[in-house]
Amino acid sequence: MKILVPVKRVVDYNIKPRVKADGSGVETAGVKMSMNPFDEIAVEEAVRLREKGAASEVVVVSIGVQQAQDTLRTAMAMGADRAILVLTDESPEPLAVAKVLKTLVEKEGPSLVVLGKQAIDDDMNATGQMLAGLLGWGQGTFASKVDVVDGRVNVSREIDGGTEQVSLTLPAIITADLRLNEPRYASLPNIMKAKKKPLETIPAADLGVDMAPRLTVVSVAEPAERKAGIKVGSATELVEKLRNEAKVI
């Protein structure tokens, strides 16, 4: 069984994003970029399934600029076997990403696609669900536990009021939530080894997918800045302020 894991290169989660002065977007030039944290979890889960013998190969794929190669190398240093870069200068929307991924699924024939639940730049939380729809596959989103048994995958999902279990027939789509696992750090020898693993580059145009955006960004603005308030010396003072100044209790 083959597993496909789409990974996205995003602004590192430790960086506070800055809105560009002209309101056209968020500054990414000269900013530290990393693998989307949820995708690290997705890669980890796929590698563990291979290590357990439930899978035979883990293929990672990124749709993006040339530098997304670094993200793919990181994924291979974590244990993925090979990588595909679908090269594009645009930052495609989930609908376009899902269409590209569908063509790759048709070519590669994986039994499982494990994605992150959400990219921390666009915060869309959509691509996995959309790919599942396009393929007509079952979807186990926001997964906190995944078990592959007898041609099915059983998934625990984080829902608003607790946890839910669903069982899907393979092939299927999983999207990883934060508590699915704790991703490993790539060791130096594995980073060296990853440099020799195969990385295939495909120009997005070669896939014949309509990637035109459907959403036009009218503007990007800073949210209203909250000002730091005051420090109070005691619980008594705090309660007094909440009662008489903020009038909130």
């Binding site: 994003p17 809105v19 009218v218 990007v220």
Partner: peptide, 16 residues
């Protein structure tokens, strides 16, 4: 809609 963990607010127009 907020993007980047609410550090930016994007106004988007849909052509769908």
């Amino acid at each position: 809609r907020p993007i980047y963990a609410g550090n930016a607010l994007a106004t988007v127009r849909s052509s769908d």
